[in-house]
Design a protein around this nucleic acid. Structure first.
Length: 728
DNA sequence: AGCACGCCGACT
DNA sequence: GTCGGCGTGCTC
């Protein structure tokens, strides 16, 4: 005598599935797998997802607790997505319950039935999008809220009513003014705008992707900045929609701008379900469900959008595939680009990874024949590439970090009425405060890091924890007046430039000056306004946005990237240089990029500047092979942190003993992390390396349960990072 | 991770 | 006498 038992993935950090008797009363539905259930868990209750139904002897099942209730009338997670999540749970050695929870929108993690979406759907029109930005509409707050809501995807009247009061009348008004329209989710909402004609290389790329439709194929679309990668995506997506299939498009965090969304919407003429981190819970759930029902022809989103269920999948696109924001950096540390390829294979659809500066991983996959390379080498309808100029800083007099040559170039740019970007990846006034008399410098009491001088707010701040203290006037050690800020941050650059060019607009972009997305958009709009300006900024300005009036870029200090402790430093630097250079001289005028360095003869810089990114990448791949670093080898890092050094020591001793000696997997460490102490926690890592993934996977699978069961693990915060981006 | 249970120190 | 410190065990 056997009875049916539910295998339930519960969102707890335990690497196993829990068995329950079905909820009392009803028979177990045939399609139980993928439905959510409320289950008792110790003294609490959780929402779990059924991942298996098995038959167990009645006597065994009697010892199990019954699930409390079903939450779904049909499976919420379909076959392919659940299979991919199962695979990912094993691959990333992360508990399935937490993996599944990460894939579910917040609303669906709660013990409630899924929100219903029914009735007519409304969507903002192109006129409505223009109105949302027009000054004349600024005072119509409720209308603007409606337009913003409908800009994220089609909504029903009922959904709109959740966001604005007296929704019915507002919707009627907006309809009458042509700002919104009724859409049937499956049909194009507007005639798609016709794009520029494709050049032969673009047409060839589109044809290759089209030829692969209906089956799995992976492409690396390797196209220089301005070669029209987006046109290739748009054409391929359009073809996908016309075949009645859905396209999933991933963009980096910084890339999902209103301009980008509008371009997709206008050119594709269909509703686009948008998924990004800033979305309200309800809106995110609606977009997710629309994708799952097949109502959204295009799903556009950042990292976690790769976990969206698709009813009619046809194509996956990953834009700027080299971007580090695709890797989740805490909890379940998945890589969205890699998962996109895994999903494409499982779904039997083509996947296109695009970049002007492909990751070395993807280039290695091309070399190994796993991805097909599609090259775009021509800059479409534009001036020649920017002139790259190395500024040798040795024996030069510097003015707050800027060379005479850079200042002269900035002055000329302003005189011509053009815009310049001064790029420096350190915010604050100066990275260090030093006493010239006794050698004291400001250190964080909780981290192995120096305190950054923030002059405007008169603070010394740690950029790695929340520590801050008043900026001292005298040296805390010797009491002298010899304190001096050492080094240059964006704040100092801004101050210097403002003093030197008092009539120019100086706009600073960093986390201190630009905290929110709306602040960014506001300042960004100021750039687009006419007239000369100097933009001073960090990473924030390095990618994504079009800066059409920019003709000069000054990279204040590239040396940090040349001598980084992390093995990906050179790759990151090269990508940054090429991406920033891509911002220069976009319009009618060719641009100039000035790289300030104390190492003008560094082979990395020479190769990159003389022969381009592809040559750099080939050289760097060879260097990684010789050094036995990824992608030549594969890595897994076990990280842990604790306040007490002895506790940390004991933990890693236990892990090492557990793993033991293996022939196929090299074990290094535990090594102190680059910042061995952070926010009061000591941090170390154990590096596992092997020539292929299989032995690493076997080792993880073999020891995973024991790793969780380790008594020493209770005293530390630990995590497994498969394919880590940083090993410092 | 939570949360309970359990066994030793300073307090109303 | 008990309130509460955090070690240890368990979660179907």
């Amino acid at each position: 005598m056997t009875v049916q038992v539910l295998g339930v993935a519960v969102p707890v950090p335990l690497p196993r599935v829990f068995d329950y008797r079905p909820p009392p009363g009803l028979a177990v539905p045939a399609d139980a797998v993928g439905r959510r259930v409320r289950v008792p868990f110790g003294p609490r209750e959780h929402v779990g997802v059924v991942v298996a139904v098995t038959a167990l002897p009645a006597a065994t099942a009697a010892g199990l607790r019954p699930a409390h209730a079903w939450l779904d009338e049909s499976p919420l997670l379909g076959g392919e997505l659940l299979d991919t999540l199962r695979w990912a749970s094993a691959y990333y050695a992360h508990p399935l319950g937490e993996v599944i929870q990460a894939a579910l929108p917040v609303v669906l993690r709660r013990a409630q039935p899924p929100p219903v979406a029914r009735g007519r759907h409304y969507l903002v029109t192109a006129a409505g999008e223009r109105a949302a930005e027009a000054p004349a509409y600024r005072r119509r707050k409720r209308l603007l809220r409606l337009l913003a809501l409908l800009a994220t995807g089609p909504r029903t009247a009922a959904e709109i009513a959740e966001h604005v009061t007296r929704a019915g009348r507002l919707v009627d008004e907006a309809l009458a003014e042509g700002l919104i329209e009724i859409v049937s989710a499956h049909l194009p909402t507007a005639p798609a705008l016709i794009g520029p004609p494709l050049d032969p290389q673009q047409a060839e790329a589109v044809a290759a992707i089209a030829a692969a439709a209906g089956g799995y194929a992976a492409f690396l679309l390797d196209g220089v900045t301005g070669s029209g990668k987006t046109e290739v995506y748009l054409t391929a997506i359009r073809a996908c929609i016309e075949r009645g299939r859905q396209a999933l498009v991933l963009v980096p965090e910084i890339g999902l701008t209103p301009q980008a969304l509008r371009r997709y919407r206008e050119r594709l003429g269909v509703p686009i379900a948008m998924l990004h981190s800033g979305l309200a819970d309800g809106a995110r759930a609606q977009a997710w469900l629309a994708a799952a029902r097949g109502d959204a022809p295009v799903v556009l989103g950042t990292r976690s959008a790769v976990l969206t269920p698709l009813a009619r999948p046809g194509l996956i696109v990953v834009d700027e595939e080299h971007d580090a924001s695709y890797k989740q950096q805490d909890g379940w540390r998945y890589h969205a680009r890699d998962l996109a390829v895994v999903r494409a294979r499982a779904l039997g659809v083509p996947v296109v990874l695009g970049s002007a500066t492909p990751s070395l991983e993807s280039l290695a996959n091309v070399a190994a024949g796993r991805y097909r390379s599609l090259q775009l080498t021509r800059r479409a309808g534009r001036a020649e590439p920017p002139r790259m100029q190395v500024v040798d800083l040795r024996r030069q007099r510097l003015h707050d970090g800027l060379s005479e040559a850079a200042i002269a170039a900035l002055a000329q740019t302003l005189e011509r009425g053009e815009q310049a970007l001064v790029f420096r990846n350190r915010r604050g006034y100066a990275p260090t405060l030093l006493c010239h008399d006794c050698g004291w410098y400001g250190e964080c009491p909780r981290c192995d890091a120096r305190l950054t001088v923030h002059r405007a707010s008169r603070l010394l701040r740690c950029h790695h924890c929340s520590y801050e203290t008043a900026l001292p006037k005298q040296c805390p050690a010797c009491g002298s007046d010899g304190l001096m800020p050492l080094g240059v941050g964006t704040e100092r650059l801004e101050e210097h430039l403002a003093a030197r060019f008092p009539d120019a607009r100086i706009l600073r972009f960093d986390r201190d000056s630009t905290r929110t997305r709306s602040e960014f958009e506001e300042r960004y709009a100021a750039i687009e306004a006419d007239g000369p300006a100097i933009l001073v900024g960090t990473q924030m300005l390095a990618k994504g946005h079009d800066l059409p009036r920019l003709t000069l870029v000054v990279l204040v200090d590239v040396d940090a990237g040349l001598f980084s402790t992390d093995f990906r430093g050179p790759e990151r630097l090269a990508q940054m240089v090429v991406q920033v250079a891509g911002r220069a001289g976009r319009a009618d005028r060719p641009g100039t990029v000035m790289l300030q360095t104390h190492h003008p003869d560094h082979p990395l810089l020479r190769t990159l500047l003389a022969d381009g990114y592809a040559a750099f990448a080939a050289a760097e791949l060879e260097a990684r092979r010789l050094a036995q670093l990824p992608p030549a080898v594969h890595l897994v890092v076990i990280r842990a942190e604790a306040r007490d050094a002895a506790v940390l020591e004991r933990y890693f001793a236990a892990v090492r003993e557990l793993i033991g000696e293996t022939a196929e997997v090299g074990v290094r460490g535990p090594l102190p992390a680059a910042m061995a102490r952070r926010d009061g926690y000591l941090r170390r890592q154990l590096v596992l390396e092997a020539g292929s993934r299989a032995p690493l996977q076997r080792l993880l699978a073999r020891h995973l349960e024991a790793l969780h069961a380790l008594p020493a693990a209770r005293r530390v915060r630990w995590a497994i990072d498969v394919d880590p981006l940083e090993v410092d």
